[in-house]
Design a binder for these strands. Structure first.
Length: 306
DNA sequence: AGATGATCCTGTATGC
DNA sequence: TGCATACAGGATCATC
């Protein structure tokens, strides 16, 4: 499932290709993948427009569009793909939107489950940091959460790799929370871009049980958590993301982080640290992978480490 | 207010 | 063998 590293990889592959790509027309196969405006307006507005690059904020891919500044916002959700293709490349199944470019190339949005969404915004309608991440020029005023469109885009927490995301900030966000730490880390308002895979991996690396109440984490655990979130995200970006079944980059290539995952998808297999079996449980309604020996359910022992 | 559960969607895996 | 059901999950909405 595309999380921050996967979306970042798509961004990196598309950015140089879309620096000056004029859209000839937009083929709309499934109207319901367009979140805003309505599908007809969306297609009409983009025909004749020009992509000028690619940015990212959290799991949102941001394609700046001229004239504008406007931004095509894409959320791939679980199985969405945004892939650039030559005119002769066969069309993959479940293709919902095709941007035909003037030079003959095609930018295709495909999604088996049709959970992914495309949105078109004026840059000035977006929060300033989102417009800036899009590279659409910090055109200014923040509109309140979009009435239609994607509210999540308007309430994103800090980027995990930014300086702003540190132990003090995370500690403040965890204080008093009884929800499982995993649920809090999945909340995009707390930190932007983590999903099920990298939350499980970061908690394993930090030696923290996913079901621990968030407010019970000791300060050194919070520090470890920040460090491990950053390290696993950084490594996954380097490895161009994790491909378990669907994810591919902007050229249709898989990522190579999969074999480096320590717990996700490894239930029953030996823990890489202690050789005990990796378990799969349910936390916050999500399939959750952990090593119960390396990630004790209670705090004991933790302050000795570090 | 904050947390939990249902919902969307379909391919894949499991169960009988 | 074949069919039915469960499951996967990001974000949103309704309901405790």
């Amino acid at each position: 499932m595309p999380e921050l590293p996967e979306v970042e990889t798509v961004r990196r592959t598309l950015a140089p290709e879309l620096e000056a790509a004029v859209v000839r027309r937009v083929d709309m196969r499934s109207r319901d993948v367009v979140g805003r405006p309505d599908a007809e307006t969306f297609a009409a507005e983009l025909a004749g427009s020009r992509f000028t690059g690619a940015g990212r904020r959290g799991k949102y891919l941001l394609l700046p569009v001229a004239p504008g500044p406007r931004v095509l916002v894409v959320h791939l959700r679980m199985t969405g793909r945004l892939v650039l293709a030559g005119p002769e490349d066969p069309e993959p199944p479940h293709t919902h939107v095709v941007f035909q470019l003037e030079d003959g190339r095609l930018l295709r949005f495909a999604d088996v489950r049709r959970f992914g969404r495309l949105y078109l915004y004026e840059a000035r309608e977006l929060p300033a940091d989102v417009a800036e991440a899009a590279g659409a020029g910090a055109s200014g005023r923040t509109a309140a959460a979009g009435p239609d469109g994607s509210p999540g885009l308007f309430t994103l927490g800090p980027e995990p790799l930014s300086r702003r995301f540190d132990a003090r900030l995370l500690g403040e966000r965890l204080r008093g929370r009884k929800a499982p730490i995993k649920a809090v880390l999945l909340d995009q308002r707390v930190v932007a871009g983590l999903g099920n895979i990298y939350v499980d991996e970061a908690l394993f690396r930090a030696g923290i049980h996913p079901a621990r109440p968030a407010g019970d984490l000791a300060p050194d655990e919070t520090r470890r958590l920040v460090r491990e979130i950053r390290s696993v995200i950084r490594q996954a970006v380097e490895r161009r993301g994790t491909t378990l079944s669907d994810y591919v980059d902007g050229y249709g290539r898989p990522g190579s982080m999969g074999p480096h995952l320590a717990v996700y998808g490894r239930s029953g297999e030996p823990c890489r640290r202690c050789r005990g079996p990796v378990e799969k449980i349910r936390v916050a309604g999500r399939g959750t992978h952990l090593c119960p020996r390396c990630q004790p359910a209670r705090r004991e022992g933790h302050w000795k480490v570090n």
